[in-house]
């Protein structure tokens, strides 16, 4: 297991390095002059030259990449062009706010999705299972930005229960802070909840159809024990993989939902960077998100290994 953890950690480092290269390559090699992308089509040649000088764009690409990478290793994420501030603190601030949003949504998705999935699997064919199956079809398919505008129209514009958009720091009072979180968290969770519960149901059903469950029943174990001691530990393995996939979808949701709710998180910051062609900020933000995603995948892999004795104790002889 120790060797496995070290191998996976090394893998994460490699993935982050490689994605940094990929991000850099896409930003710098795709057709389109970076300086023009930043300044717009009608920039004067002099302005372009100044900017190229300032950004070091005249250096060879590998040197530019090295400068960027070594800067990051020294904690220098680069300079936001539009805001003219170091990107690091900007990203860190936004990341904290996004983490609260995404973290709450993820807890709801994981706990709720698994609970609903297990319920559906153990009540296969019952009314509750059928209703949930139908709901899942719809909820997986509805885009979160549509939920977002619906929620704003209904709960903010019509009912005036909750603030439509924005963010209140906890210093302004916990109630205000929380009230700005409710709608984004719900919108973020709803589609993923459907996804996780649907796939958990499938994993659980498969475990319940297995022969070791038949064996447990033949041993006279109660249905409760069969479910939680025999089926669940095996069904959790695919569920962990599903949760890792959904974490990627969650990051996408965060970008969209933060934009709709004007929530000042990392997703909003990225969209801002794209809209204003703030490439250094964009690069740094992307790298941070990719690293988080890689760490989430690592957590999923380790969780999978911890639950799966085949990995924990090596493969069968």
């Amino acid at each position: 297991m120790g060797a496995y953890v070290i191998r996976r950690l090394l893998g994460v480092v490699l993935v982050v390095l490689a994605t940094s290269l990929l991000i850099f390559a896409i930003v710098h090699i795709l057709p389109g002059n970076v300086a023009y992308a930043i300044l717009g089509e009608y920039a004067t040649p002099a302005a372009v030259a100044t900017l190229q000088e300032r950004l070091g764009l005249n250096d060879p690409l590998w040197l530019q990449y090295w400068h960027w990478l070594s800067g990051i290793l020294h904690g220098q994420m680069g300079q936001s062009l539009v805001m003219d501030r170091p990107a690091g603190p900007l990203i860190l601030d936004a990341l904290g706010r996004s983490a609260i949003l995404a973290g709450s949504a993820f807890v709801i998705v994981a706990s709720g999705g698994i609970a609903l999935g297990v319920h559906a699997a153990t009540h296969q064919g019952h009314v509750s299972d059928r209703v949930m199956t139908l709901a899942q079809f719809v909820f997986i398919a509805v885009p979160d930005f549509f939920w977002a505008i619906l929620a704003v129209v209904v709960f903010a514009s019509w009912l005036h229960w909750l603030p439509a958009t924005g963010y209140a720091p906890p210093a302004d009072g916990l109630l205000a802070w929380a009230s700005h979180l409710v709608l984004p968290v719900i919108v973020l969770s709803i589609g993923l909840l459907a996804h996780v519960s649907r796939l958990t149901r499938a994993a659980m059903l498969e475990a319940l159809r297995s022969r070791y469950v038949l064996m447990a029943r033949a041993k006279g174990m109660s249905e409760r024990r069969v479910l939680w001691r025999h089926a669940a530990p095996n069904a959790m393995l695919p569920t962990i993989t599903i949760l890792a996939i959904d974490f990627g979808l969650l990051i996408g949701g965060v970008v969209v939902v933060e934009t709709v709710f004007a929530y000042p998180g990392l997703g909003r910051l990225l969209v801002f960077a794209i809209e204003h062609h703030d490439l250094p900020l964009l690069q740094a933000g992307m790298l941070v998100l990719t690293t988080i995603y890689a760490l989430a995948n690592l957590a999923a892999d380790l969780g999978y290994a911890a639950l799966n004795p085949r990995i924990r104790y090596g493969a069968a002889a």
Binding site: A18, I251, G252, V255, I274, L289
Partner: peptide, 21 residues
């Protein structure tokens, strides 16, 4: 493929679309 999959889906799209019109 491993590398591409290690980017969250929307980021890959954002990245490609952000740089060019």
């Amino acid at each position: 493929a491993d590398l591409m999959i290690s980017l969250p889906p929307i980021l890959l799209g954002l990245l490609i679309l952000a740089v060019t019109p």
